[in-house]
């Protein structure tokens, strides 16, 4: 999968991952894919809720060693 924009929010606390993610998506074209990394333990619940309320599309989530990796398609 081609990733168009990468945002690394590792180490950042709430609400930064969401704010950074939103900023990145605002600057993207429809259909482009965002990869966002976060070490915030609440990130999974945050991003699930947030994507559901946005026009964007959830692609995937994986976690390894406390780093969450989200893929989101700009809608």
């Amino acid at each position: 999968m081609n990733i168009d924009v990468r945002v690394d929010t590792k180490g950042m606390a709430c609400p930064m991952p969401i704010v950074k993610g939103k900023k990145a998506l605002d600057g993207m074209q429809q259909g482009q894919i965002l990869e966002l990394l976060s070490t915030d333990k609440g990130a999974l619940n945050d991003f699930q809720a947030w994507v559901k309320k946005s026009p964007n599309e959830w692609i995937s989530h994986e976690e390894s060693n406390g780093v969450h990796r989200f893929l989101i398609r700009k809608g």
């Binding site: 969401i18 704010v19 939103k22 947030w50």
Partner: peptide, 11 residues
Amino acid sequence: FIIANGAAAYD
């Protein structure tokens, strides 16, 4: 302000 910034990120 955390809630306000979160809500702004919710557009």
